[in-house]
């Protein structure tokens, strides 16, 4: 229904620095992640020099997840957050690893099985804009480096707010805007020169990594995203800049 409306109206959105029809973005993003899925973790380590582990660890600390809770990790990709949540919620809790991309989910599933994270973990292939879960059913939602790839971010945030239990929390870990202008210049050079080169060298795919850099620039900055979360109905919203604002983790509570 929504797709048809968008196609008819010819609504557009950004795909990196390109402007595409809203209906096309999902397929284009899928193409990018199909291409990078197999070497996603390796590339994350290479591109961030391993710092992404620190960003994710701090996000997990902020989640304050307790045993017995239900956690949804959207755009969970290869499941590194889900594996840690699986240990935190224990046997009485459950972790739902959701991703729109089946290639990423397959890599995540295999990795989690290999690491022994089973029993309280479930995989769901779904769209963050239309989450297939009952209202007020989830204690904590995390979306790490996924929101910028979502076509309609406001719709996704509203969908997340809907399924959170009152008092439940949403954590959005995402690339953001560096706070120091000089640092931003260096970061820009790294993103547009070094990242595609690394993509070409290690994954034989410069375009996907160019898209990653472009999509980061098109993503809302810290304060804009904070406003979007408040507009979605979340309260006590706040954010923490990490590594000079390259990444920010936003947190909001369901009223």
């Amino acid at each position: 229904m929504t797709d048809k409306t968008n196609a008819a109206s010819g609504e557009t959105t950004d795909f990196g620095f390109e402007t595409v029809n809203k209906n096309e973005k999902e397929g284009l993003v899928r193409g990018v992640f199909d291409s990078v899925a197999n070497r996603y973790d390796l590339m994350n380590d290479l591109m961030s020099a391993g710092i992404h582990r620190l960003w994710k660890r701090f996000t997990i600390e902020l989640s304050a997840v307790r045993p017995g809770q239900t956690v949804l990790d959207i755009a969970g990709g290869t499941g590194d957050l889900a594996a840690k949540f699986s240990r935190l919620v224990g046997d009485n809790g459950q972790v739902l690893l959701a991703d729109i991309n089946d290639s990423m989910l397959k890599v995540g599933r295999d990795r989690l099985l290999d690491s022994g994270a089973v029993g309280n973990l479930h995989m769901v292939q779904c769209d963050a804009q239309m989450l297939p879960f009952p209202d007020a059913s989830i204690d904590c939602i995390t979306i790490a480096f996924g929101l910028r790839n979502v076509t309609d971010k406001d719709m996704a945030l509203r969908s997340m707010e809907r399924i959170l239990k009152p008092g439940g929390r949403l954590l959005v870990l995402e690339f953001s805007k560096p706070v120091n202008p000089i640092f931003e210049k260096i970061y820009d050079t790294y993103s547009f020169r070094v990242l595609p080169l690394m993509g070409q060298l290690f994954n034989n795919d410069a375009d996907s990594y160019r898209y990653l850099a472009e999509s980061i620039r098109k993503h809302p900055d810290q304060d804009t995203l904070l406003g979007m979360m408040e507009d979605a109905g979340l309260v006590n919203c706040e954010y923490h800049n990490m590594t000079g604002g390259i990444v920010a983790v936003h947190r909001g509570i369901k009223a």
Binding site: I51, L54, W55, R57, F58, E61, H240, N241, M242, T243, G244, V247, V249
Partner: peptide
């Protein structure tokens, strides 16, 4: 402080 730096020190 930058949470990433504190987290790195604490992780080590």
């Amino acid at each position: 402080h930058d949470p990433a730096i504190i987290t790195a020190v604490l992780m080590a």
